[in-house]
């Protein structure tokens, strides 16, 4: 069975460590916040200027001056702080954030990522994505393994404009977990979703990936 969105988020949450400062991208990555292990201290950074992001507010506590990078109203946990965009990106570009979890449109076999633009079609902008992939210590992508047309998204070379080069450390999809081997510059098939075969992953991946003799199963 392929993983559902929440199971992908649950697997991504296994990348968290106690005391981590983490930036979660807009969309599916925000689900990871629901699976922070009990008792673990994780500080969520929102690049518009908030460290220590909390849950959505109660209706009576909504504050137009307190939003996250997705422009959603949020709250702060005890000990949260506010700062300017320059300080915020000082955290990101200065290598102070431990982990970023992002979505992607395409990944290359060397770990390039494209997730901000489709020429002639989608004009939204990169926001903070280029800064995150360039500056954060470890970058994890969670995404569907193929696009809406069923075409592979993990391909030899990205066809879309890049967000960053050789910057992705781990990929979690509904089918598998891929980890970048920095020496060989290829993803290694690390874990398979329950019931998913290596053959199915390879059939849906045109990038060259490395398959070890034994591959573990995603444990949730």
């Amino acid at each position: 069975m392929p993983l559902d969105r929440n199971q992908i988020a649950k697997r991504a949450a296994q990348e968290l460590k106690d005391g981590f400062y983490v930036n979660l991208g807009i969309g599916m990555p925000t689900l990871v916040a629901n699976y922070v292990p009990v008792g673990m201290e994780v500080w969520l950074q929102s690049e518009n200027g908030l460290l220590g992001m909390g849950a959505f507010p109660k209706d009576s506590e909504v504050d137009a001056d307190l939003i996250n990078a997705g422009k959603q109203t949020v709250t702060g946990v005890a000990g949260h702080s506010f700062f300017s965009s320059a300080d915020s990106f000082g955290m990101i570009r200065g290598g102070h954030i431990d982990l970023a979890i992002l979505g992607a449109m395409e990944l290359s076999e060397e770990g390039d990522i494209a997730n901000w633009m489709i020429p002639g079609k989608l004009v939204k902008g990169m926001g903070g994505a280029m800064d995150l992939v360039a500056g954060v210590k470890r970058v994890v992508v969670m995404m569907e393994h193929v696009n809406k047309k069923g075409e592979p998204k993990i391909i030899p070379r990205c066809t879309l404009p890049l967000t960053g080069r050789r910057c992705i450390d781990l990929v979690i999809t509904e089918l598998c977990v891929l980890e970048m081997d920095k020496h060989q510059r290829r993803f290694i098939l690390k874990e398979l979703a329950p019931g998913i075969t290596t053959e199915e992953v390879l059939a849906k991946t045109t990038a060259e990936i490395l398959v070890p003799a034994t591959v573990g199963e995603v444990a949730l």
Binding site: S84, S85, A86, F89, R93, G125, G128, M130, G135
Partner: peptide, 14 residues
């Protein structure tokens, strides 16, 4: 239109 990465834009202004 000129797109700048958000951190680059903040730093350019700073």
């Amino acid at each position: 239109l000129e797109f700048n990465p958000q951190g680059t834009l903040a730093e350019r202004l700073r």
